[in-house]
Nucleic acid binder design. Structure first.
Lengths: 131, 131
DNA sequence: GATCTTATTGATAATGATTCTCGCTTTTAC
DNA sequence: GTAAAAGCGAGAATCATTATCAATAAGATC
């Protein structure tokens, strides 16, 4: 029997709690933040589940400039993020016009299998008014 | 606290060696790689100088998916990178048409001071042929 | 429901990249 | 030349993340 089972995934309270916490939030959260919030869930478990959820495409990983990785429960499909650099609010951008740009440039330089990665960083309305 | 340091920058052999090594390379290099290459320069010094050079805009920092930061001596001005995910070759892209896209979206969502960050990741011609 | 297999958990150690510390060495100004 | 301060280097310290491993619990089977 093919032991190469596509890695079965069991349902656990911990993972449910993590996904739930992410769903309730408009911001992206780090493993530490989630662990602080759900102190019944071990830190290693938070990291493990975030990694798997991201791998399964159920959540998105967002790299912050300082190096830490935050995660967010996004809707499916290709999209980019508009992130408030002050409060961390994330807006999903589903109208992506970068594929053309990427493909054209890839062809010009002989690259294949090109994918693009892009993010917009700014200050949201609320934060701009507050200062 | 902001990391900006308006102090004077002195000329040193070590920094010159670092810049020189970067100039001679088409790829982006990590602090470790530079330290291995220039074993007369201490690791901390490599990090210090890379940080400052990037801050001063003399080199570009490129974040790899695995979390490490690589640096490259780029030409001046706003540009993006087309990176070979196999050999690390970097092509500078100076024709950026993303400003419009960013501004439009920022306006729509009430964001101000928006800047974009984008990279193309693919396989270069040489690497594609080799496999 | 009892039992077995094994994914999952969690406390902690380990890792890897980067930054800090601090005494010593150069640059640069005078 | 001299002296103040930027810069250096070796190693300690930090920070986010990953690995270890015994104990636990999910899902299948009887």
């Amino acid at each position: 029997m093919p032991t190469s089972n596509p890695t079965t995934r069991r349902k656990t309270e911990q993972r449910a709690a993590i996904v739930d916490a992410l769903r309730k939030n408009d911001r992206a959260m780090t493993a530490q933040e989630l662990h602080d919030l759900l102190d019944s869930v071990g830190l290693a478990t938070v990291y493990r589940n975030l990694g798997r959820l991201a791998e399964d495409g159920e959540i998105d990983a967002i790299r912050r400039p300082n190096g830490e990785t935050a995660y967010r429960a996004c809707t499916a499909g290709h999209h980019h993020h508009l992130i408030c650099r002050n409060c961390g609010l994330v807006v999903e951008l589903h109208d992506c016009s970068l594929d053309d740009w990427g493909r054209k440039i890839a062809d010009k330089h002989g690259f294949v299998g090109v994918e693009h990665q892009a993010e917009l960083l700014g200050t949201c309305e609320k934060c701009a008014n507050r200062s």
